[in-house]
Design a binder for these strands. Structure first.
Lengths: 354, 354
DNA sequence: TACCCTGTAGAAAGCGCTTTCTATGCACTG
DNA sequence: CAGTGCATAGAAAGCGCTTTCTACAGGGTA
């Protein structure tokens, strides 16, 4: 039914071994022979049997990218960049297999710890070449331990582990590379910026409490307040999910409870957009009546009116780098902190007199 | 090094065949034996070797979901829904493999024809159980033929092909199921709504010219104009990409060239948001001075201020259904047109007097 | 001329599973 | 008590590749 390597060998009048060698290009084959084999491959329209080759070679070309929410551009950008750097289309149709021919796939955990583990098992089953974990981790001792154990087993079986935008796993030498975002410093700078504009009553719309990203950003915010000697009123901090609706709802509660707020910092741009929507609804001008700031610098931050002051995270670059690392670049054990840069735009301004 | 099925068999003092049967649950095994095997599995922390099992059984549990742009919620929602319905976490940790244990992965083509083909080859190589193609197709005879040929070969090898939000492939009986969006009717209704509000000078910001989705929506728009006997001025139609920046730029051109416009229809919600931004920038009130409408009914359409009048596409439901179909549900050759429903919100209003 | 090295290709042994075919025990039935 | 059938488990033959080991030319070198 389907064409096998043996068929190609017969067609080219060589042994299966030779065909394999031509296809993998890891052994000298005479030019004339190679030529004959390649012709047979294209004439028969042969496609390697992945499972068979993975079994025999004990390696696979599958790379899994785990994301929390596939519908969120934050993850989409990173995943897309990683994918682009893991797989180069130009080589795709060629019969010779190259390093660029990896099947990079994204797995959507939806933020569920159980699904995260499921996908890890599924990838382990496929003997994946690498796994990239993106975004904040869940802060639950049991789950963290389970993930760490799973990753250790994966690494043991030869799977490269790369963390992208995730805090480093303490003492986990099986992690090939870690790119963690400097969320804390970014948040500190952002709130520092607001303080320097004269704001003192600043609301904060945080993400889900159990995520590391949420905690780090909030801590940075608090550190900035403390450094400036500003009051840190717990009532001005509200937790929610990382989406627009949550931002809008939180803004509504914040603005009702504390009408004296002059600024609201959101844990990410999407939340910030929700905050802006609520402010507009209440007739508050941005930034004259209320300054609003986000985090991540997603495309929508630039497009908003007014454009959002935010903290730029080089998501594309980080994703691309994670892809390269997953492909084997860099020395094992590499840990890198990706800087978070303050980007001041129109949504923040000096606090209004009085 | 890694635990194999033979190790489990030895540990449980049974034959490898028995272990395989317990794990696959497709053959009667005495309760006591099964019990012993399962204990061995968990004691040794055994994980099936996917490639080996795929090779032996000539099937795999890989399902590929091809999307045009992973950073676009339009695709993210469909892909997430499909993924959720292809893989149930509750069964994941259990040693017994169930139907729900598929590795559903999304592949980002980035709209590139070459990458689309690449991914198809990669999935063919893995002997994927199913492939879901989402979103509009590219209208290029050569590429369409290449894709159709590829799909035919995949189907021949046992891969189920499902189209989601894609026009049916003419005469392609190898497609397991097709869910196509009724873009034309949706667009017709949307423009009809605007016409009924008295609008006659309506701008249209279309997507990339070479995509089926773009063409169908534009055709629906024109059909509505024709049906109402309204003029169809080609100068009022601008093509661009499906993103916010493109919408904003197009709106700028449209509003400058034709200040008498009373409404702008965008090919999707993201473009519409860009149009709104530009209108706001120019001091035009929505909908008093300008009505704006989108398409898709993404979450951001609801959250916009004012909320966007749009055409609702049941993306989640369609994605979920595509997942089920890819999992084997439904009879082969199933073709279904997913209705597109007009959703009137605040961004459209009666044309202003004078 | 004898020898060895280098370049190239084939033979064959798995990789870790699944599955058919076969074997065994045991409970029935007549 | 022999005969039949069912329930359960093992043996073994692959699935389609990769890769080590081996083989054989032909061309230097001594």
């Amino acid at each position: 039914m389907t064409v096998t390597l043996a068929d190609v060998a017969a067609h080219a009048r060589v042994s299966p071994a030779t065909v394999s060698r031509v296809l993998n290009g890891n052994y000298p084959v005479a030019a004339a022979t190679r030529e004959r084999v390649l012709r047979a491959v294209s004439e028969l329209d042969y496609v390697v049997n992945g499972p068979a080759s993975a079994l025999a070679a004990a390696t696979s070309d599958l790379v899994g990218i785990l994301v929390n929410d596939i519908a969120d551009p934050f993850f989409g950008i990173m995943a897309g960049a990683a994918q682009a750097h893991l797989n180069t289309p130009s080589d795709a149709s060629a019969p010779i297999r190259t390093n660029a021919e990896r099947l990079a796939v994204v797995c959507n955990t939806g933020g569920s710890p159980a699904r995260e583990l499921t996908y890890l098992t599924l990838l382990q089953r496929q003997r994946a070449a690498a796994v990239i974990l993106t975004g904040g981790a869940i802060e639950d001792a049991e789950h963290s331990a389970a993930v760490a154990a799973k990753l250790a087993r994966l690494a043991e079986a030869g799977t490269r582990i790369v963390l992208c935008g995730r805090p480093a796993l303490g003492g986990a030498e099986f992690v090939h590379a870690t790119l963690s975002f400097d969320n804390r410093a970014g948040a500190r700078r952002l709130t520092g910026h607001l303080l320097s504009l004269g704001h003192r009553r600043i609301g904060y719309v945080a993400g889900p409490a159990e995520r590391t990203t949420t905690r780090h950003r909030l801590e940075g915010h608090r550190e900035a307040l403390a450094a400036a000697g500003a009051a840190d009123d717990p009532a001005l901090v509200l937790h929610g999910s990382y989406d627009r609706a949550s931002g809008r709802a939180a803004a509504a509660r914040l603005l009702s409870a504390a009408p004296d707020l002059t600024a609201i910092v959101a844990a990410n741009d999407t939340i910030a957009l929700g905050v802006c929507a609520e402010a507009r609804e209440r007739g508050l001008r941005i930034p004259e009546d209320l300054s609003v700031a986000g985090f991540d610098d997603l495309p929508s931050a630039t497009d908003a009116v007014p454009a959002l002051t935010t903290v730029r995270l080089p998501l594309y670059e980080a994703g691309a780098r994670a892809g390269a690392l997953a492909a084997g670049a860099g020395a094992a054990g590499h840990v890198e902190v990706v800087p978070a840069e303050l980007v001041v735009r129109g949504s923040t301004g000096v606090v209004r007199a009085g």
